[in-house]
Amino acid sequence: MTESTAKQNLLDLDREGLERFFADELGEKRFRAHQVMKWIHHRHVTDFDEMTDLGKPLRAKLLERAEVIVPQVHFDKPSTDGTHKWLLGMDGKNAIETVYIPDKGRGTLCVSSQVGCALNCQFCSTATQGFNRNLSTAEIIGQVWVAAKHLGNIPHKQRRLTNVVMMGMGEPLMNFDNVVRAMSVMRDDLGYGLANKRVTLSTAGMVPMIDRLSEESDVSLAVSLHAANDELRTELVPLNKKYPIAELMAACERYVRRKPRSSITFEYTLMKDVNDQPVHARQLARLMRQFGNALQVKDAAKVNLIPFNPFPGTRFQRSGEDEIRAFQKLLLDAQVLTMVRRTRGDDIDAACGQLKGQVADRTRRQAEFRKHLEQITGGEGGDAAA
């Protein structure tokens, strides 16, 4: 057997992994890993020769054994409301989208975890693109690196990165190890120094992995609910057939019990005449009250109402403003903490549910959606993935 000549991409490693690499692979002191982390994540330096507090012999070792490969920016596009979207190349065939949303003293980065998505949530544009593969840790944290470097270059606009949400393309808990490792770097003082509560993972309801997340990471949890009865939720979120609402809510209870003073945000996308009627609001209020009563914790559940963001070929429509406010009022009257998410970046297709990127689909879902689009547009729909 010949010895592998592949270089280690240092973006793939969290602090513990980088310390092991320096000690075991390079024969160096562990604190050297801390120096390199600061160069990469604080100063956005990827050239070892520019890491001037490292001796020449160590820099030579790094040049031989390691590299720092960040995602390639295919384009970056600002919105009129200050939102910013990047299309980032992951390899020769695939690209993913990452979105930055500034708002009143905070800046939130929406990060992708997969190329496409293996789930098939009916109201999500990403689902129409199918699925190719999981992202590596380097490709996940690389999105943060690109955004932080960009924001650091425009200090006069006073834009900064304060929050990260794993709500971009993909189901994060289906890429558990890489996502958890990347979130560790996000929260590390040698990485991006974000508080635990300012890193949020959103899941469609991977029940076993919610339990594992509560044991292995300390981040905020959001659950894509979208319906409070199993029949409708299974239609909208097919994963519900495997992990129905009762099992999902039980996992959420266990998560909060293991995380004192924590709460869970339940995301609910409002679609006209689908899940926005008073009966749906009452069902949701009942479910949230049951959740809070079981835990005996005030505001253990928060509901985030999301107006549906249309995309070409979808059968769903956005609920009207009156319906949205009436839905919120029914929840608030039932003592359920409820917010309405303001739509941001929809002029550049950067709003919630609109991310799609470029996916070399292995599921044939993209071809099926194109066929559907041609049927409803008489063959004038064009390329839905463009």
Score class of each variant (00 low, 15 high):
A246L: 08
H226K: 04
R159D: 09
G191D: 11
V219C: 10
R198T: 05
E231W: 10
L161H: 08
A148Q: 14
D177Q: 07
M166L: 13
S184K: 02
V223Q: 08
D177M: 09
R198V: 02
H150D: 15
E171W: 03
M206L: 06
E171A: 00
N175L: 10
T265R: 09
M169G: 03
A250G: 10
Q158V: 12
V256G: 03
V207W: 10
M167S: 02
A251D: 13
E253M: 09
R187A: 07
E235F: 12
R160P: 15
M167F: 12
M249E: 13
Q143E: 10
E215G: 08
H226P: 15
L236F: 13
V164F: 08
M166T: 00
T162G: 14
R187C: 04
S214C: 07
D177C: 09
K241D: 08
T200A: 04
G170W: 07
I141Y: 04
I210A: 05
R257E: 15
L201N: 05
T234N: 12
A228S: 09
V179D: 06
P208K: 05
G205M: 02
V180I: 11
R198C: 13
V237H: 04
Y192G: 01
A148C: 10
A148R: 14
N196C: 06
M186N: 01
N240Q: 03
K157H: 12
R187K: 05
K149T: 12
M186Q: 01
T234P: 00
L225D: 11
K197G: 14
V199F: 11
M167A: 06
N175T: 08
N196F: 12
T265E: 11
I141E: 03
L232D: 13
T265Y: 11
E171F: 03
P238E: 04
V219N: 07
R187W: 02
K259A: 12
P155Y: 12
T162M: 09
S220W: 01
D230R: 06
M186V: 02
E231L: 14
S220A: 14
V199I: 04
W145R: 00
S202T: 06
G142K: 00
G191E: 10
T265F: 11
R212L: 15
L225G: 14
R254M: 11
M166D: 01
E215D: 14
A182G: 03
